[in-house]
Design a protein around this nucleic acid. Structure first.
Lengths: 343, 343
DNA sequence: GACCGAATTGGTAGCGCTACCATCAGGATG
DNA sequence: CATCCTGATGGTAGCGCTACCAATTCGGTC
C-alpha cells in the first residue's frame, strides 16, 4: 500500500509544493507565512507551484506543529438575539480578510455551559477569546486568566477586566432612559424586563436609581420575567403591568422587542402614545425609527463592539496591548415621537 | 531544554493519561472514542486518570491523525438576517451534545466568497457541509460534489441535489401568498422585494405566476431593489410603489421586515389596513401576530430546517443516507387581520 | 585576504493523536 | 489437543506542518 494514499484524499501537501518548486519544505512554509523572509525569486516560484497544485495548507497540521491555532473563540449567550447577531457580524467582518477563523458557540445564558465551552475552546489553543459580559463564574474566570491568549470581554464594561473589555454601561443606559422619561413629564414609569440576564439587571438598576433619585420609585412599577424576550412577550408584560398599575404614564423597556410589543398593544387598546403613555426602548434597532409613532430608544453600537474587540485582540496578538484595556463605546439616547409629549 | 516543555503549555497529553492509568496510549484513545471496545475495568481506570489530569483531547492532533475533523462547515449568506439566525440556532442546538464543532461562515450572498470559503473549509476535511440555497456556482458545485463528506443544501428545494436537501419551495410560497390576496378581493397587488437573492427571485416568480393566472399581472406592480432588507426599506419601497400605482389595494412583501415597514407607513399615512390595502409578509416572524393589525404571513420552519439538516448529515455520516434525499418542510399561510377584508 | 554578521535556505525532530498491524489470551471446534 | 477464531491490548509509524538549529552565501570590515 502506497504511503501517500494511505490516508487523506491525496490532496497536495507542502512537500508536493516544495518538490515542484525545487526548494525545501520549510521554505515553502516560510514563503506562505512570512513572505518577507524569502527572496523574491523563490517566492514567485513557490507561489506558482501553489497555484498549479491548488495547494491549501492544512490548518490542523499547522495548529499542531505551532501549538497555536489561528482561531478566535467567541462565546455569546444567544444566536438569534439581534444584538448579538450584530456583534458577531462585526467580528466576522473584521476577521474575514486575515488568516483567522472564528469558532462561535452559544452559552444559552448559562455559566456552566460557558465553562464547558471554554474548556473545549482552550483545547484548541486559540489565538484569542471573546466572551460576553463580565459575570463569568469563578472557574471560567480562572480558565480565562490562565489562558495564554488575549481575552476580550464584550458588551459591558466594569472595574476588573480579565484582560481587555469593550462595551458600555448598561446601568447608565438605564438611568439615561429613565431620566429622559422623567424629564418629559412621566411620573408613573413602568419597567418591563425579559430574560433578566446581568445586563438587563443593570439596566433595571439604572432605572431604579433614577426613579429613587426623583422620588418616584415604587416596586409595583417593575415587571420582569426570566422568559426570553420577544415582541409577544412585550405585549404580555405590558398587560400585566397595566393590570397592576392602571395609571402608568410611561414605560421603559429592557429592549426594543418588548417596546414594540407595548407599542402594538397601545394601538390595539387605543392608548395614545406618547400622550397617555410614553415608551422608551433599548438598543435602537432599525425598526424603531420607522415605527408609528417612532420609538425613543438607547442607541448601542453592537457592530462596533465586535470590530473593536477584534481590533484590540489583534493588537495584543501583535504584541502591543492597547494602553486602554477598557474601552467604553457608550450609548446615545435617540428621542423620538414615543416620548415627545409637550408637558 | 526538556522536550516536554519545548512547545505547548505543558497541558496533559494522551501519553500522560496512559502512563497514569498504566495502559498504552492507544487504549486511552479507544476508551474515549469507542468505549465499548475496551473492558469495563480499564475504562474506569482511564476515566479516573482523565479526570485527575483534566485531560482534554487536542482536536487538531485528532484531525491530523484521523484525516477527518469533527467539524460541520456551515455557509450562510447573512448572519443578522433573522431567518438564517434561526437556522443556525437549529444547527447549533442539534450539534451541541455531540463531539462535533460548528464552523460557520458568511458568504455575504456572493458566489465567489462561497467558493473561497468552501476551499477553506475543505482544507479542514470537515465531517459534513451545510450550504445555503441551490444556486451554487459551477466551481462551488464541483468542490461540493468531490468533497468526501455529506453535503446538505438548505432553505430551498430543487430538482438536482448535490447530495441532500432540506427546505421549501419559495415559488409555491410566493404563489400561495399572492393567491390568498387575490381570493380576499385584491386586484392591484404590489410586490415589494429587497436584496433579490435567488429565493426572493423565486417568490417573485410565484407572485408573477399567480397574477398572470388571474389575469392581473402588470409589471408596474413590482418594486424591487438589490439593497439589503430592513423595516426602513419596506417603508421606502412602499412609498415608491404607491407613487407608481396609487390605486394599490394589496401588497405582498418579500419578507416580514418589509411588511412591517409597510404597516407602519400605512399608519402614518392613515391608510386603512386591510380595508384600503391588504398586506402579506413572508417567514412569519414572531412579531407579525402581535402587530396591529396582525399581519398575514407565510410561515416557514427555519429552526426545523437547521435541525433536519444536521439529522440528515448525521445519518449519512453514520453510513445510512436517508432514502429521501430531498426533504420538503413546506410552509403555511397564516391568515391574520392584515388581509381580513370582507369583500 | 581572513573574519564577521546578516540574510537566506535547509535538515531534523517532533507537535498529539490514530490507522494499521501484531500480539496474546481464552474459548470454541473438530 | 492442535487449530481457529474472537476480543482485548499494545507498538510502530506516520498525519502535514513548523520550531529549532545548522549551513551556506555574500557583502562589508579591519
Amino acid at each position: 500500500m502506497k504511503p501517500r494514499t494511505r490516508r487523506g484524499g491525496g490532496r497536495p501537501t507542502i512537500a508536493d509544493v516544495a518538490r515542484l518548486a525545487g526548494v525545501g519544505a520549510i521554505t515553502v512554509s516560510r514563503a506562505l507565512r512570512e513572505p518577507e523572509r524569502v527572496s523574491e525569486a523563490l517566492r514567485q516560484q513557490i507561489q506558482q507551484a501553489v497555484d498549479e497544485l491548488g495547494y491549501v495548507p492544512d490548518p490542523n497540521a499547522r495548529a499542531l506543529a505551532s501549538a497555536r491555532a489561528e482561531v478566535f473563540g467567541v462565546l455569546v449567550p444567544s444566536l438569534t438575539n439581534n444584538v448579538f447577531a450584530e456583534v458577531v457580524r462585526g467580528i466576522y467582518d473584521s476577521l474575514s480578510d486575515g488568516p483567522f477563523r472564528v469558532q462561535l458557540a452559544n452559552t444559552h445564558y448559562s455559566g456552566l455551559e460557558e465553562e464547558r465551552l471554554l474548556q473545549l475552546f482552550l483545547s484548541q489553543r486559540p489565538a484569542a477569546l471573546i466572551v460576553s459580559g463580565i459575570d463569568q463564574t469563578d472557574t471560567a474566570r480562572r480558565l480565562l486568566e490562565t489562558a495564554d491568549c488575549p481575552v476580550v470581554q464584550i458588551m459591558e464594561i466594569g472595574p476588573d477586566p480579565i484582560d481587555m473589555m469593550v462595551g458600555l454601561s448598561h446601568l447608565e443606559g438605564g438611568r439615561s432612559a429613565t431620566n429622559h422619561l422623567i424629564e418629559t413629564g412621566c411620573r408613573r414609569i413602568g419597567f418591563l424586563g425579559a430574560r433578566m440576564d446581568p445586563r438587563s439587571q443593570r439596566r433595571l438598576a439604572g432605572y431604579t436609581a433614577a426613579m429613587k433619585a426623583a422620588g418616584l420609585y415604587d416596586p409595583r412599577l417593575v415587571t420582569t420575567t426570566p422568559v426570553p424576550s420577544s415582541v409577544t412577550l412585550g405585549r404580555d408584560l405590558f398587560r400585566d403591568a397595566l393590570a397592576k398599575m392602571p395609571l402608568l404614564d410611561g414605560v421603559f423597556c429592557n429592549n426594543d422587542d418588548l417596546a414594540l410589543g407595548v407599542l402594538f398593544e397601545c394601538h390595539r387598546a387605543a392608548i395614545a402614545v406618547p400622550q397617555t403613555i410614553s415608551i422608551c426602548g433599548f438598543n435602537d434597532l432599525d425598526m424603531m425609527q420607522v415605527a408609528y409613532p417612532s420609538v425613543t430608544s438607547i442607541r448601542t453600537y453592537r457592530y462596533e463592539i465586535g470590530r473593536q474587540a477584534v481590533s484590540m485582540a489583534m493588537a495584543a496578538i501583535g504584541g502591543s496591548r492597547p494602553e486602554n484595556r477598557v474601552v467604553d463605546l457608550g450609548f446615545e439616547l435617540r428621542r423620538r415621537e414615543s416620548t415627545d409629549r409637550q408637558n
